[in-house]
Amino acid sequence: MNKGSCRAGEALIRFSKVDLSFSDRKILEAIDLEIMRGEIVCLVGPSGCGKTTALRIATGLLAPTGGGVAFDGAPILGPRRDVAIVFQDYGKALLPWRTAAGNVSLALEAVGTPRAERAARIDALLAKVGLPHHADKYPSQMSGGMQQRLQIARCLAQEPAALMMDEPFGALDAMTRQELQDEMLQIVRTTGATVLFVTHDLEEAIYVGDRVIGLLPHPGRIGIELKIDLPRPRDQIATREDPEFLRLRRELYEFIKSAER
């Protein structure tokens, strides 16, 4: 059931011996991680373990102090257009003075899509994230879930090979979060994008991931790696009741508990 099987064994994103320190404080130490094409890898860990920092390094927004990250074989020196970032604080990542259509348009303007083609692309993207009738709304007129959908639509406008998601659903209520998990998985399945997904919600990590990496804090380093072989498409009820899901959940909870100690 592994999606990346067509080009299995080929890493799209490769962390090699990534270190990061601020002055004398070590944030990350010797992170080695390979993310295969089409794979969904989740990063979890107690707060302060550097999971968001690791994601920011993978996006190129932050440079490591040691080691490096390669994307498709080339070292990452800065943000790439084909790597889209979904920020947790959607309210800050959207342009409040632009409508939903205008916010998606920003990404199209950035890649130089001709004006005549934009409207159709925007309509298609908004429909894809379930916002087909909200093109003229401003972010301030939308709920949190809708705003996050909008941010995802803008990211998809970049036609990304990889999505970097930093606790994307952390600020949403439980129902909306589950809806968006399923929609995200659906979108990823159709686009075949590779996903690095940071979350503090262990069940969410198991539910969406092909693999879950648990980080240990002070300094942040990889402590556990779980392969998630649950059948896809995942289902909010069936998957979460699967004995394998429960076993993985127990293992991950025990890891986090020991990591926090």
Partner: peptide, 8 residues
């Protein structure tokens, strides 16, 4: 950061 990600 959004601007950097989009290469504006």
């Amino acid at each position: 950061e959004v601007a950097r990600a989009l290469h504006l």
